[in-house]
Each structure stands twice: as C-alpha cells, then as structure tokens.
C-alpha cells in the first residue's frame, strides 16, 4: 500500500483540472502530429490509412482536452516548447515503421488503461474517457498485431522491432508518474501495463527490454516542460503556418 500512497495523485480541487487536461491533451496532440507525419510515407496504403485514422482519434481527444484547459488553437499553435506538458515518449521521432509501432504499443497500452480507469470514475475526464477507451482499444489492437507480426517475423523485422522497443524503453517510466488532477493509481496502472506488455512480447517471441525505465538524466521530465531535442523541430513544423498567418481561416 505504500507504493499506492506515494504514486496516487491527490484528488485535487477544480484548479488542477485545466493543468491535468493540458498534460493529457498534449500527449494526444503531439502523438497525433507524429503519426500524421507518416502520410505519404507509410509502407502500404492500408497502413497510411490506419495511422492517419489513429492520428485523427487522438486529435479529437486532444481538442476536447485542450478546450478544457483554454483555447485549443492558442494552446496548440502559440505555446513555446517549454510550456508543453506531454510525455517525452510521444514526441520521439517516428524512426522506421517498427520504431513507430513500438511507440504505439507502449503508449496505446498505457492510454487504454488510463481511459478505462477514468471512465469508471466520476471525475471531469469520465465522459471523454468513456468514448476514448473504445477508440483506443482499436489502437491497441493495431499495435499488438504489428508487434507480433514483426517480432515473430523475419530476421530483419525482428531486429527492427527489438531495436524500436529498446530505444524507447527509457521513456516508459514517465507515463506512470502522478499528474495532479488525474485520479488514478500510477503504481497499479504500471503493474497492469507491464503484465499486458509481457503478454504481447511473449506472443511476439521477444524478451522484454532491459535497463532503467525512469530516473535517467533526461528521460521523464516532459510533464515539467523539459523536452528532448527533436521536439522543437516538430513544433516548428506544426506551428509555423499558424504563426506565419495569424488569424487566417479557410
């Protein structure tokens, strides 16, 4: 129970809700943008469509969440890097297809557990969570199918899947750190996440990655506004049109 007490975010007053919505909304927005970068580059047409669809779901979730925190457009397009509260995991570049699938596997397993938990509660995120949990179930399904196919595939696909999982492993600890206003038990969520991940990896005939998942010198501070080097460039691309033409509309 000690673990529960230390990782369970204090059920905070209404003032914590906008900050919590910003953190969860930034996760969805940033990952949505990263997945959108696959448009025109995915290995097959079906994957192009799949990744864009997942990006669209995340964008919808981001719009609801950012609107709970303020003006969605201002928040998305006019904030500086240090004001974003997303996990460092979601800002990581796409890499090859297996790398993207590894990021999807880690994040969508987490997000599905998170929405499941929040949908069961009575908090401010319950209405969105009830909807998003069903969408995220398809994201999990997509990531799991590909992880198994690549992990238990050819020598080359196994090598790449392995490399993607290893490279992103150090960003996975941050997902379970408490966020004020998000009323979930981080430690319990982490245990379920590890169990589900183990199950997928064993089906893919892959060993779980080794090494620290948190506490590294830089990984795990996205929630405090400390981001990795590729994030600034991603933001520049995401924001430049809006910043270059203020107030423009279709």
């Amino acid at each position: 129970m000690t673990a529960t007490e230390t990782t369970h975010a204090t059920p905070a007053g209404p003032s914590a809700v906008p900050a919590a919505a910003l953190a969860l909304g930034d996760d969805a927005l940033v990952l949505s943008h990263r997945l959108g970068e696959w448009a025109g580059h995915a290995p097959v047409l079906e994957e192009e469509v799949a990744l864009a669809n997942i990006a669209l779901d995340l964008l919808g979730q981001a719009r609801v969440l950012l609107s709970m925190a303020g003006d969605e457009d201002e928040l998305a397009f006019l904030r500086e890097e240090r004001s974003f509260r997303n996990l460092q995991l979601v800002e990581q570049p796409n890499g090859d297809f297996a790398h993207t699938i590894a990021r999807q596997l880690y994040f969508s397993l987490y997000q599905h557990l998170l929405w499941t938990e929040l949908a069961a509660g009575q908090g401010p995120f319950a209405p969105l969570a009830a909807k998003a949990v069903k969408e995220t179930a398809y994201h999990v399904d997509h990531a799991v199918q590909w992880t198994v196919r690549l992990g238990d595939g050819t020598e080359e696909s196994t090598r790449r899947m392995r490399a993607g999982l290893d490279a992103l492993w150090k960003y996975t600890g941050e997902m379970f750190r408490p966020v004020e206003g998000v009323d979930v038990d981080g430690a319990a969520l982490e245990q379920r996440w590890l169990a589900e991940l183990d199950d997928v990896l064993s089906r893919a005939r892959l060993d779980p990655p080794e090494g620290p998942r948190t506490g590294a010198w830089r990984a795990g501070a996205g929630r405090e506004g400390l981001h990795t080097e590729p994030f600034g460039r991603m933001l520049a691309e995401m924001q430049h049109l809006h910043r270059s033409h203020p107030g423009a509309s279709w």
Binding site: E46, V49, A50, A52, N53, I54, H142
Partner: peptide
C-alpha cells in the same frame, strides 16, 4: 479483414 481502418474513422476494410 484487409485493414482495421478504412475510408473514415468508423469503418474497417
């Protein structure tokens, strides 16, 4: 099943 995602968010191919 060809793809879990299709022409719109609500459809599979």
């Amino acid at each position: 099943l060809l793809s879990r995602f299709s022409s719109t968010a609500c459809k599979a191919l």
